[in-house]
Deep mutational scan, measured.
Amino acid sequence: HNLTITQGKLFFHYNPKLCLSEIHKMEEVSGTKGRQERNDIALKTNGDQASCENELLKFSYIRTSFDKILLRWEPYWPPDFRDLLGFMLFYKEAPYQNVTEFDGQDACGSNSWTVVDIDPPLRSNDPKSQNHPGWLMRGLKPWTQYAIFVKTLVTFSDERRTYGAKSDIIYVQTDATNPSVPLDPISVSNSSSQIILKWKPPSDPNGNITHYLVFWERQAEDSELFELDYCLKGLKLPSRTWSPPFESEDSQKHNQSEYEDSAGECCSCPKTDSQILKELEESSFRKTFEDYLHNVVFVPRKTSSGTGAEDPRPSRKRRSLGDVGNVTVAVPTVAAFPNTSSTSVPTSPEEHRPFEKVVNKESLVISGLRHFTGYRIELQACNQDTPEERCSVAAYVSARTMPEAKADDIVGPVTHEIFENNVVHLMWQEPKEPNGLIVLYEVSYRRYGDEELHLCVSRKHFALERGCRLRGLSPGNYSVRIRATSLAGNGSWTEPTYFYVTDYLDVPSNIA
Results as ranks from 00 to 15, higher is better:
Asp204Ala: 15
Asn206Met: 04
Gly207Lys: 03
Asn208Tyr: 09
Ile209Ala: 11
Val214Asp: 01
Phe215Glu: 09
Trp216His: 05
Trp216Val: 11
Glu217Cys: 14
Arg218Leu: 13
Ala220Arg: 09
Ala220Ser: 11
Glu221Asp: 06
Glu221Thr: 12
Glu221Leu: 14
Asp222Gly: 09
Asp222Ser: 08
Leu225Gly: 01
Leu225Thr: 07
Phe226Thr: 04
Glu227Cys: 10
Glu227Lys: 06
Glu227Ser: 11
Glu227Ile: 11
Leu228His: 05
Asp229Val: 03
Tyr230Gln: 06
Tyr230Cys: 11
Leu232His: 12
Gly234Thr: 10
Gly234Asp: 04
Leu235Cys: 10
Lys236Asp: 05
Leu237Arg: 13
Pro238Ile: 02
Ser239Ile: 14
Arg240Phe: 14
Thr241Arg: 14
Thr241Glu: 05
Thr241Phe: 15
Thr241Trp: 15
Trp242Gln: 08
Ser243His: 13
Ser243Ile: 09
Pro244Arg: 15
Pro245Asn: 07
Phe246Tyr: 11
Phe246Ser: 10
Glu247Tyr: 12
Glu247Trp: 13
Glu247His: 12
Glu249Cys: 10
Asp250Val: 06
Ser251Gly: 13
Ser251Asn: 07
His254Met: 08
Asn255Leu: 03
Gln256Trp: 07
Ser257Tyr: 08
Ser257Lys: 04
Ser257Leu: 07
Glu258Ala: 09
Glu258Leu: 11
Tyr259Pro: 09
Tyr259Met: 09
Glu260Cys: 04
Glu260Pro: 12
Asp261Pro: 15
Ala263Arg: 12
Gly264Tyr: 14
Gly264Glu: 09
Gly264Met: 09
Cys267Thr: 07
Cys267Ser: 04
Pro270Cys: 03
Lys271Ala: 08
Lys271Arg: 05
Lys271Ser: 06
Thr272Tyr: 04
Thr272Asn: 08
Asp273Ser: 12
Asp273Arg: 02
Asp273Met: 12
Gln275Lys: 04
Gln275Val: 06
Gln275Met: 07
Ile276Val: 05
Leu277Ser: 07
Glu279Cys: 01
Leu280Asn: 13
Glu282Thr: 05
Glu282Phe: 11
Ser284Gly: 04
Arg286Asn: 03
Thr288Phe: 04
Thr288Pro: 03
Phe289Asp: 03
Phe289Arg: 01
Phe289Pro: 02
Phe289Val: 04
Phe289Asn: 01
Glu290Pro: 02
Asp291Ala: 03
Asp291Pro: 03
Tyr292Ser: 03
His294Asn: 01
His294Ala: 04
Asn295His: 01
Asn295Arg: 01
Asn295Val: 02
Val296His: 09
Phe298Ala: 09
Phe298Gln: 03
Ser304Arg: 06
Ser304Ala: 02
Ser304Val: 08
Ser305Arg: 13
Thr307Leu: 11
Thr307Trp: 12
Gly308Phe: 04
Ala309Lys: 13
Glu310His: 14
Asp311Gly: 13
Asp311His: 14
Pro312His: 11
Arg313Val: 14
Ser315Trp: 08
Arg316Ala: 10
Lys317Arg: 08
Arg318Phe: 15
Leu321Met: 11
Leu321Glu: 13
Gly322Tyr: 06
Gly322Thr: 14
Asp323Gln: 09
Gly325Lys: 13
Gly325Phe: 09
Asn326Gln: 15
Asn326Ile: 10
Asn326Ser: 14
Asn326Phe: 14
Ala330Ser: 15
Pro332Thr: 08
Pro332Arg: 14
Thr333Met: 11
Thr333Gly: 13
Val334Cys: 06
Ala335Ser: 08
Ala336Arg: 05
Ala336Ser: 10
Phe337Gln: 11
Phe337Leu: 12
Phe337Val: 10
Phe337Ser: 08
Pro338Trp: 09
Pro338Arg: 11
Pro338Val: 13
Asn339Thr: 10
Thr340Phe: 11
Thr340Gly: 13
Ser341Leu: 09
Ser342Ala: 14
Ser344Tyr: 07
Ser344Gln: 13
Ser344Asp: 10
Val345Cys: 13
Val345Trp: 09
Val345Arg: 11
Thr347Ala: 12
Ser348Leu: 12
Glu350Thr: 10
Glu350Lys: 15
Glu351Val: 13
Arg353Val: 07
Arg353Asn: 12
Pro354Asp: 15
Pro354Thr: 13
Phe355Ala: 12
Phe355Tyr: 09
Phe355Gln: 04
Glu356Ser: 15
Glu356Phe: 13
Asn360Lys: 15
Asn360Glu: 11
Asn360Asp: 09
Lys361Asp: 07
Glu362Thr: 12
Glu362Arg: 13
Glu362Pro: 08
Glu362Trp: 13
Glu362Asn: 09
Ser363Val: 11
Ile366Thr: 03
Ile366Ala: 04
Gly368Cys: 11
Leu369Tyr: 00
Leu369Ala: 05
Arg370Ala: 12
His371Phe: 11
Thr373Ile: 11
Thr373Ser: 09
Glu378Met: 07
Leu379Arg: 01
Gln380Asn: 15
Ala381Met: 01
Asn383Met: 04
Thr386Tyr: 00
Glu388Val: 05
Glu388Ile: 12
Arg390Cys: 09
Arg390Trp: 12
Ser392Thr: 03
Ser392Glu: 15
Ser392Lys: 02
Val393His: 13
Val393Pro: 14
Ala394Arg: 11
Ala395Glu: 15
Ala395Phe: 03
Ala395Arg: 05
Ala395Val: 07
Tyr396Gln: 03
Val397Pro: 06
Val397Tyr: 10
Val397Asn: 15
Val397Ala: 11
Arg400Lys: 04
Arg400Asn: 12
Met402Gln: 11
Pro403His: 04
Glu404Gln: 15
Glu404Met: 14
Ala405Arg: 11
Lys406Arg: 08
Asp408Asn: 15
Asp408Arg: 04
Ile410Ala: 09
Val414Cys: 04
Val414Ala: 06
Thr415Leu: 12
Thr415Lys: 07
Glu417Ser: 13
Glu417Met: 05
Ile418Gln: 10
Phe419Gln: 11
Asn421Ser: 11
Val423Gly: 14
Val423Thr: 14
Val424Gln: 02
His425Leu: 11
Pro431Met: 01
Pro434Val: 11
Leu437Glu: 04
Leu437Ile: 11
Leu437Ala: 09
Leu437Phe: 13
Val439Pro: 09
Leu440His: 07
Leu440Pro: 01
Tyr441Ala: 01
Glu442Ala: 11
Glu442Gly: 12
Val443Phe: 00
Tyr445Phe: 05
Tyr445Met: 10
Arg446Ala: 11
Arg447Thr: 07
Arg447Ile: 10
Tyr448Phe: 11
Tyr448Arg: 15
Gly449Trp: 04
Leu455Gly: 09
Leu455Tyr: 11
Cys456Ala: 03
Val457Leu: 14
Val457Ala: 08
Ser458Leu: 06
Arg459Pro: 06
Arg459Ser: 08
Arg459Thr: 10
Arg459Tyr: 04
Lys460Thr: 11
His461Tyr: 07
His461Arg: 12
Phe462Asn: 11
Ala463Phe: 11
Ala463Tyr: 09
Glu465Lys: 08
Glu465Leu: 13
Glu465Cys: 11
Gly467Met: 06
Gly467Ser: 07
Cys468Arg: 11
Cys468Lys: 10
Arg469Val: 08
Leu470Phe: 08
Arg471Phe: 11
Arg471Leu: 06
Arg471Trp: 04
Leu473Asn: 03
Leu473Pro: 02
Leu473His: 01
Leu473Asp: 01
Pro475Lys: 10
Asn477Pro: 12
Tyr478Ser: 01
Ser479Lys: 05
Ser479Ala: 15
Val480Ile: 15
Arg481Thr: 07
Ile482Asn: 00
Arg483Lys: 11
Thr485Trp: 15
Leu487Gly: 08
Leu487Val: 07
Leu487Tyr: 08
Ala488Met: 15
Gly489Ile: 01
Asn490Gly: 13
Gly491Leu: 00
Ser492Lys: 00
Ser492Met: 09
Trp493Ser: 10
Trp493Tyr: 13
Thr494Gly: 00
Pro496Gln: 05
Thr497Met: 14
Tyr498Pro: 06
Phe499Leu: 13
Tyr500Gln: 05
Val501Asn: 06
Thr502Gly: 12
Asp503Phe: 05
Tyr504Met: 06
Tyr504Phe: 11
Leu505His: 09
Leu505Asp: 07
Asp506Ile: 11
Asp506Gln: 14
Val507Tyr: 06
Val507Met: 13
Ser509Pro: 10
Ser509Leu: 14
